[in-house]
Simulated scan of single mutants.
Amino acid sequence: MGLPKEHRLKHWRDFKTIYSQGKRFRGDALAIILLPQPAAPTKIGISISRKVSKKAVVRNLIKRRIRHACRTLLPQIQPGWHIVITVRYNARECEYEHFLQELKRLLIQAEVFHGH
């Protein structure tokens, strides 16, 4: 089960804009790039390179875990942001709980998480 449709970032132009103009925050396994979009719902996209794993099965497993973490944290993220989550090479060994903790830490660091 993916993210709700209104919270998906899908178009390559949106990704390109966020990469060029967004603010970056890096962790061990993930990096996030944020761009404010006032008067719009928060949209999230996930980017994972073949450098992380040559096998599509592994990359898809990582994306599923990150999507689940995003679904869990989405109600606490302030509206009006476009977020791209980039998976780093260290993510191959990570489990869901690690993605959840790191994503929460990065969102708090970026000051887009409610209550922090």
Rank of each mutant, 00 (worst) to 15 (best):
L61N: 11
R64Q: 09
L74T: 10
A69C: 10
K51A: 13
L73Q: 13
V58A: 05
R50S: 07
V52M: 13
V52S: 07
I48A: 04
E97R: 15
R59T: 02
I85E: 04
S53A: 14
I44G: 03
P75R: 12
N60H: 09
R59C: 01
I44C: 14
G80R: 08
Q78G: 05
L103W: 01
I46C: 02
G45T: 06
G80F: 12
K43Y: 05
S47G: 07
H98S: 13
A56S: 15
N60S: 09
A69P: 10
S53D: 15
G45K: 01
T86I: 11
A56T: 02
K55M: 02
I85A: 05
R59A: 02
H98Y: 07
H68Y: 07
K63W: 01
W81M: 12
I48S: 07
H82I: 00
E102V: 09
H68P: 01
S49P: 14
I83M: 14
K43R: 15
H82G: 10
F99D: 00
S49H: 08
E102P: 10
R59N: 01
L100M: 08
T42H: 11
L73G: 02
T42E: 03
R65E: 12
P75G: 12
R67I: 04
L103G: 02
V87Q: 00
V57L: 09
I85N: 03
F99V: 02
R88P: 00
K51Q: 15
T72S: 12
K43W: 07
L61S: 05
C70E: 06
A91V: 09
Y89W: 04
K43F: 02
W81D: 06
V57S: 15
I66D: 07
R64L: 09
I46V: 15
G45I: 05
V87I: 03
E102Q: 08
Q76L: 15
K51W: 04
H68L: 14
L61E: 03
A56D: 10
H82E: 15
I77Y: 09
L73R: 03
R64K: 12
R59G: 01
G45C: 04
R65Q: 15
G45Q: 07
I83R: 06
E97A: 15
I62G: 03
I46L: 14
L74M: 12
Y89M: 13
T42S: 13
L103S: 05
N60F: 02
Y96M: 10
P79S: 11
L103R: 03
G80N: 10
K55C: 04
K43G: 07
G80M: 10
F99Y: 12
Q101C: 09
Q78C: 13
I62V: 11
A91S: 14
Y96D: 01
Y89L: 15
G80V: 12
C70P: 11
V87P: 03
Y96A: 04
F99W: 05
H82L: 13
K63M: 06
L100R: 13
R71D: 03
T86P: 00
R67E: 13
E93K: 13
K54A: 11
A56P: 01
C94E: 02
I77E: 03
I83P: 11
L100K: 15
